[in-house]
Design a protein around this nucleic acid. Structure first.
Lengths: 215, 215
DNA sequence: TGTACATCAGTGAACGCGCGTTCACTGATGTAC
DNA sequence: TGTACATCAGTGAACGCGCGTTCACTGATGTAC
């Protein structure tokens, strides 16, 4: 997937094996979390000796890096797909929740507790800002409030992260609230903190989305 | 701390060593995260052989369990201390943020991505509901909105987690919003997702607190 | 088309490391008479 | 107060395991003449 193309049979084979490795890596992450990812265990599942994987990934960190990149790209794709249909915030919120619930550990790999000692590569920021762009556009398309909050004023002077220079500060603050509030509800749900409390996490999520899409 | 008392010198010594073990455990968690917690490493730091720790904790999971219990108790204490002075939501929010920033990994041990394979003990729920009680009381003390949201109606029928039967549904929903929104802002900040964006996370937090303490 | 060579996937052994945990034992500390 | 005994903290060796990674090598696949 990250390979440029697969012209020759050998290159096609390489890409195929890389994909198979990643697939088993995801299964492992899904069941035991990212910090437990083991190259040897993946090799065993594929039916190949451990060192063989080093033909495809330079190291364990290298593999994790590609998984993170793929995850960000997948979320960006999902966001962009929903943004084409019509840029409404509620739609993005639904897309986010579905994407997260489809593979909780994938979500947590990006937004959960960072893997200790692991340093994210530079180029992921390009994809994350792509995601933020879609979100910001949706926020700018919503009706803006008449008043300006103190945080809006703060953001007016700290908006380097927003690629659209025309987006009003109220759109910036709404984008951040969207991100943090929905992440809060989602991550606590995925971590199992709501189990046993009785209420429906989906209702809580909807409630938060309503608060965000109001004026 | 979890010991009932320390009457005899031997019991006092035991409690002291247990405390020392926990202290080094926290240092290790602070630097490498909870999943990397190693009994052997702690033993080395204390200057004792590995198996010696088994005089004090039955297993690694046993130690983690006590750390989690202590962390919950610490947060509950901090909450209760702020609640005595005067039950305002903004005060609780400040207490939460200070508590989290004082030891980020302690916060993440409770509310971050769960340690894979680790099962939380029963009795922690008693402390967490203690925390929720304080939060709920503060929410009930705030002026309630005149309208009733759909989520309020849902909570009216799913309020088993709220120990106070007199708390209005709007207080329940506000308590949940308090929890999820502030956790969202805090956890993303602690995970480093705001670094490089330029704005002040404290301002974002304040903004969320303002939104929660309004009507 | 056939042969000589280069490329490359995969193997097995090895290195060095750390982990949690068990076990038989030593030696110091406390207890009972 | 002194002696016999019980309690218990801590040790060192060992078990079995898994990890990431390096290295020399085999054998199959592709390439060039």
């Amino acid at each position: 997937m990250a390979e440029p193309e697969a012209r020759t049979p050998r290159e096609r084979y390489r890409a195929q094996v890389r994909e198979e490795i990643k697939q088993h890596a995801w299964e492992q992450i899904a069941s035991s979390g990212a910090s437990a990812l083991s190259l040897n265990a993946i090799a065993k599942q594929i039916g190949v000796s451990g060192p063989a994987l080093y033909r495809y990934y330079a190291s364990r960190d290298d593999l994790i890096t590609e998984l993170i990149r793929d995850a960000y790209r997948s979320l960006a794709d999902s966001f962009r797909a929903h943004a084409v249909a019509g840029t409404d915030l509620a739609g993005l919120a639904d897309a986010l929740r579905h994407w997260a619930l489809a593979d909780p550990q994938r979500y947590l790999l990006l937004y959960g507790t960072p893997v200790p000692g692991y340093e994210a590569p530079e180029d992921t920021t390009r994809i994350t800002s792509e995601i933020m762009d879609v979100l910001l556009a949706a926020c700018a398309a919503e009706p803006q409030p008449g008043t300006t909050s103190p945080f809006d004023e703060h953001l007016a002077e700290h908006r380097s992260w927003a690629s659209d220079p025309k987006a009003p500060p109220s759109a910036l603050s709404r984008a951040l609230a969207f991100w943090t509030r929905l992440h809060g509800a989602l991550s606590l749900e995925l971590a199992g903190h709501f189990t046993g409390m009785g209420f429906d996490p989906a209702e809580l999520y909807r409630s938060e989305v309503r608060a965000l899409t109001g004026p």
